[in-house]
Each structure stands twice: as structure tokens, then as C-alpha cells.
Write a protein that binds this DNA or RNA. Structure first.
Lengths: 237, 237
DNA sequence: CGTCTCTTGGTGACTTAGTTACATACGCGC
DNA sequence: GCGCGTATGTAACTAAGTCACCAAGAGACG
């Protein structure tokens, strides 16, 4: 799909000057001691990657801690049979905390991260990351909070995949992807990949939703027409 | 079940002297500077809890970092409908890293931890934990490594729940629970709870396994009789 | 010892989800 | 307007989970 898909694009790691004041995007970091702050500005780089870049993946550990300035990173897992499930998304203002923990722990990262849009991020080298963790309570707080959120989210996913009905999960996902908009640009296959389900299953559910007048479909597009109904279903009855 | 179940027992937090040399159980910590080490011995407590204790759970955040000296902690999640799934176990020599991250991040912990056996653990108060993280690269390494392992494991669980067949997962779980032994002391319901499945489903699969001569069953007991066959199935064909 | 009760496991009918193997339809480039 | 790749539809089937109930085992207790 256009907005969720990963094109196969090379990664020309566009590296920009590290001069800009990107720190406004990360309030928690503003409280760092000036000395450390200086290090941060100096040793970290601002990188840009095109849409579709694979930022990390199995056997491809990232070498730095990323703070996302712009864009979205989709973190997903792919089974041997080629089925996918989306674990979470990193938005502007957030960090790739789990990635980093795995990096610090020297463990192979099992999930992969794809740039869903063109992204801009601050890359903090491993050594500096370690120094920051050591020297700043605020930075620790920032990192652990991010961890915490992700892990909590993983727990929720496990619960949903294990126990929640697919129609409920689909309704939730549609609302999540739509946000305030009415239209979702995604194929049935894309939606199946979001939920770790199969395309046929999603097609059937979507048709059922459409039959009930909750949405309209066009090629690659789902348009919500009865949000309250979806919300009601999503709220798990 | 006897070995996996959680009895409803009170928690008389038996606190012991902190004098003993428990550090031999945690090689990574032996490299700490002597000064920090002294703090650790002084400020941390050795606690004992009976089998079945609920160590943490939703709305019940732990207030310290736990290093397990003896016993096993089962971390699981329960759905609204009462169905359960086991996420991982903390063994002697390991730490409750995820719990701690969530604790540091001030987020409500969604899973619950149950003492599967009588346990003995070192409880490191939050403040000291923070100081240790700040002052010791070795301690950071230790914590992040544990974290990494858990997260990787969560990813595997998501993949298995979403994409793996139940017979394959059951075979894996039986082998895991059996270890080197032949007998597993667990009811079908217990096994279902391990996998986040339903009792009837597990019963059917076990009966099929028994029919094939791979195991024998008695009330509350599964005895493996053809390990190679189970291994073969577990290896995902 | 016999009966009562609670736990554990068995069974069949049914629903939901996922699989397989196609057919069809849309829309873009030419 | 024609082809072609991608997207969606469909039907028959298997796997997994649900529901409702029954029966066997294991203590408990008189």
C-alpha cells in the first residue's frame, strides 16, 4: 500500500549537519547538564532516510540510538511462511528504545524496522548513549519510559492475538489507522499484515462491515461511514 | 497443577539478613567497584516468599529490582475472559528486568508474576538500582542483556501465537516443561494456560499424541514416551 | 466402606479463523 | 482500447476455539 508499504529502495544515509537545534522536539532532554548537552550536539548526527528504508532487521543490528525527528518507523515481524504482523510504530518525538536495549544486550534483534515515510532522526552513537545513561537521570528516565511503553504494548499485542476476535481487532486497527480521517489507504493484504492475519479473512470481515453500512471500499481504500458502529465493536462487544 | 499452579497464599515477606554472600550467584556483578558493591550488600535485602505468592501484577508495581537466588517466577497474562498465557519464567540467577523497566518508566505493569516455588531473592531498592545503573557499566550491561533476552522472547511468543500451529507449540512446550525428565506434572488446563489456548483443544492434541504412542497420560501427568517424535514435530514440520 | 463432592478429562456439535486454489475485476501504461 | 500486474472475490476445506454436557478419579467424611 502507498502509506504503509515498504518499497525496495537503497539507503543513501543522507547525513546532515548536526548544528540544528533539534532538541526542541525532545523536552525531556532539555534538562540535561550543559556539558552533556554539548556532547550530544557534537557527537550525534542527523540522518535522513527515504521511505521504505530498512532501518534494522534480523542480523542487522543498528549501531546507534535513534531519536525520530520526522516521519514514522514501522516495526514488524515476518514469519517463515511470509506472514507479517506489525508490532508498533515509532512516531516523531519518540525513540527506538527496544532496538537500543537489544543492541546494548548484544542480542540479535528479531523484528525489522521500516521507514514508512521519509524520516529524519538523530543518531546517537553507542558509546555516547552509554555515557548519557550513566550521567543523566533525566535521560535514563526518558529511555526507560520509552521501554516501558513499548513493552506494555507488546503485552497488549500478545493478549489480542491470543484472545481477541479478528473482527474486533480489525475494527480497532481501522480506527487506529484512520485517526481523525475517514479514509484509510491500504489494501486488504496490508490490513492482514497489520494484524498477523490472512488476506481472505480480512476481506470477508471488511465485506461484512460494508454490508452493515459501516464502511465503503474502493481499490486500496477503506472509507469509514459509520464510526460509532466500529467504535462499539472495537470496544470489544 | 502442583508444579505450575498458584495457590492463594499470603505473603509474609520473610526478610533475612543481608550479610550472606549471595553475589556468587551473579558473576556479572562481581566486577563492580568495591565501593558500589558495599552499597549493594548494605542497602539490599534478601527476601523469601512462599510458593504461590503474587510478586507483582496489574496495579501492583514492584518497588524494587529483584535478583532471583532460588526458585522460579512465572510471568503470565490473563484475559478478561479468564484465559491465561505464560510469557516467560525467571530462573535463579536471573533478574526481573522487564518489570524493572516498567517500574522505572512509571507505567502500570500489565502482566503478573507468580512464585512457582518458594523463592529467595535479592531486592535492590529503586534508588540504589538507579545509582547502580548510573555508576557501573557492568551493571548496565547486566540489566540490558536481561532486558534484551526477554524482549526477544516476547517477539518469539507473538510470532508463535500468531503463526504457529497448536500441535507444534504444544510439542515444544511439553519438551520445555519436561526438560531432562520424562514426566510433566500438569493438567490439560495448565498446559492450555501455558499456550494461551483452550483445555479441549489441548486434550484433543494430547490424545492424538498418545494415540501415536508419543506419550502416556495419567490424571495431572503427561509422560513422554517418544521424545524424538515430539522433537521432530516441535521442529516445525 | 460407601457416598458426596470437587477436580480433571472426554465428547460432539457448532462457530470462527486460516488455507488452498482458483476466478474475476480494476486501473495504469502504452 | 489492450494488456498486464495488482487487488479482490469465492468456494471448499482444515484447524482452532466454544459450548454444553457427561463421566471418571480422588479425596473427604461420616
Amino acid at each position: 500500500m502507498a502509506s504503509l508499504d515498504d518499497a525496495d529502495v537503497a539507503q543513501p544515509d543522507v547525513v546532515m549537519s548536526s548544528e540544528q537545534d533539534w532538541t526542541s522536539a525532545f523536552p525531556p532532554l532539555r534538562q540535561l547538564p550543559e556539558e552533556i548537552f554539548a556532547q550530544l550536539r557534537e557527537a550525534s548526527l542527523i540522518v535522513e532516510l527515504p521511505e521504505g528504508s530498512r532501518i534494522f532487521g534480523p542480523g542487522q543490528a543498528p549501531d546507534s540510538f535513534l531519536l525520530l525527528l520526522d516521519g514514522t518507523i514501522r516495526v514488524q515481524q515476518t514469519s517463515e511462511a511470509g506472514r507479517e504482523i506489525v508490532l508498533y510504530r515509532v512516531q516523531a518525538g519518540e525513540s527506538c528504545a527496544l532496538t537500543t536495549a537489544c543492541l546494548m544486550g548484544y542480542e540479535e534483534y528479531q523484528a525489522e524496522g521500516i521507514a514508512e515515510t521519509r524520516i529524519r532522526a538523530v543518531a546517537i552513537p553507542r558509546a555516547l548513549f552509554d555515557r548519557l545513561i550513566a550521567s543523566s537521570r533525566e535521560f535514563r528516565q526518558f529511555v526507560f519510559t520509552a521501554f516501558s511503553r513499548r513493552v506494555t504494548n507488546l503485552f497488549r499485542i500478545i493478549e489480542e492475538v491470543a484472545f481477541e476476535r479478528i473482527d474486533v481487532r480489525l475494527a480497532q486497527k481501522l480506527l487506529e489507522l484512520a485517526g481523525a480521517k475517514q479514509q484509510i489507504v491500504a489494501t486488504h493484504q496490508d490490513l492482514a499484515n497489520e494484524l498477523g492475519s490472512a488476506r481472505e479473512v480480512i476481506s470477508r470481515q471488511l465485506n461484512e462491515f460494508a454490508r452493515r453500512g459501516w464502511l465503503r471500499m474502493a481499490r486500496g481504500i477503506v472509507e469509514i461511514t459509520d464510526r460509532p458502529a466500529l467504535v462499539q465493536l472495537a470496544q470489544h462487544d
